[in-house]
Simulated scan of single mutants.
Amino acid sequence: MTHDTHGPVATPPRPVRRPTLAAVAERAGVSLKTASRVLNDEPNVATATRARVQAAALSLGFRRNAVAADLARGGASRLVGFVTGDLANPFYSAVASGIERELRGRGLQLITASSDEDPERERALTEELIERRVGALVVTPTSHEHAALRDELAAGLPVVLVDRPARDIEADTVVIDNRGGVRAAVSHLLAHGHRRIGLVGDESRLWTFQERREAFVETLAGAGITDPDRYVRDGAHDADRARAFVDELLALDQPPTALVTANNKITVGALHALRDRTGAASDRQERSVALVGFDDFELADLLGVTVVGYDAAEMGRRAAALALARAADPGRPTQLVVVPTRLVARGSGEVRTSGSSGARRTDA
């Protein structure tokens, strides 16, 4: 015989089960159907019966499953799905905040999921949200194929695309004025005497970067630059890769004197590279590389970073408004909303070349 020297083994506690609708009906002494009608706030129930069911639900701690109730009546749930490109990016957090604020007053709730710019993950997430019968769907497309969304659009599901359009479906869309923003950035640098201007961008397959790259090249070509794409680098999907690209550009025999960075994460990487170079440099000209970033970001004002800014939360608000309008009127024409940009001069984009003034100026 063996003896347990450690004492009796404790039995894990049983999980507490939520009270059911049947338990509420039993305690109130009514039928399951009557209990359901009361808790779904349906009419034609006697006042005394309604009070008895509500008291039973309160005493049991019953919580109504609103999603299940909506689906049981054959409708969509009160949930709205948002598939972002990268939830870690503050841009998408601001867009989600705008969507949520617009939905809040309508009794709707937002579910947010990130595709991490992976087309397969985007497809899986959209299909999962559709299976949950969301009332509307907001998507930042990273895939080039949207058969599932096409079918749902035909079935009447409100679908809104945000930040990028989709090539194979027609849906309400909210985008930034990418071309106008980049034109303003490049023109600003040209006005400060720069001719060798670089662009560090995201994945070349992304529509947003394609728009920004084309505007960059066109603006430089229009200013008489014969090799406008000489200093263009793409594929910088994170700050570390952007930092490496900036290091590579500034190590050239004829480096760019100014940079445009195509999103907030790339700007952060560029700032790291420029800081490293400033710390090691003894030549003022080498330290004076102008920088304009696309997207504003936290602390950019304190760091003196000139940016192409816009209202990301307003993008989310407009996307949610389009979804609600589509739900109210499924036959309305599709809309394209272009959110304007503005150049915010804070210092980094106002560095003049030595050939212009040889000194740093901050012109608004």
Rank of each mutant, 00 (worst) to 15 (best):
H3G: 05
V24C: 11
T47V: 13
N65P: 12
A68E: 07
A69F: 00
A72F: 01
G74A: 01
D86N: 07
A88W: 13
P90L: 07
F91A: 05
Y92G: 13
S93T: 14
G98H: 03
E100R: 11
G105F: 09
S114Q: 05
E120K: 08
R123F: 03
E127N: 06
E127D: 06
I130D: 06
R133S: 00
R133M: 00
H146K: 02
D151I: 03
A155I: 09
G156F: 04
L157A: 08
P158S: 07
L161Q: 04
D163V: 14
R164K: 11
D172F: 13
G181Q: 07
R183C: 08
A185P: 07
A185K: 01
H192Q: 09
R196N: 09
L199K: 04
L199Y: 10
V200W: 03
V200P: 02
S204I: 15
R205D: 15
F209I: 15
Q210G: 11
R213Y: 07
F216V: 05
T219N: 02
P228G: 09
A236V: 13
A239N: 12
A242F: 12
R243D: 07
A244C: 04
V268G: 09
A270K: 01
R275V: 10
S282W: 14
D301Q: 10
D301C: 08
D301E: 15
A325Y: 05
G331L: 04
V338E: 04
T341W: 03
A345H: 08
E350H: 09
T353K: 12
S354W: 13
T362I: 14
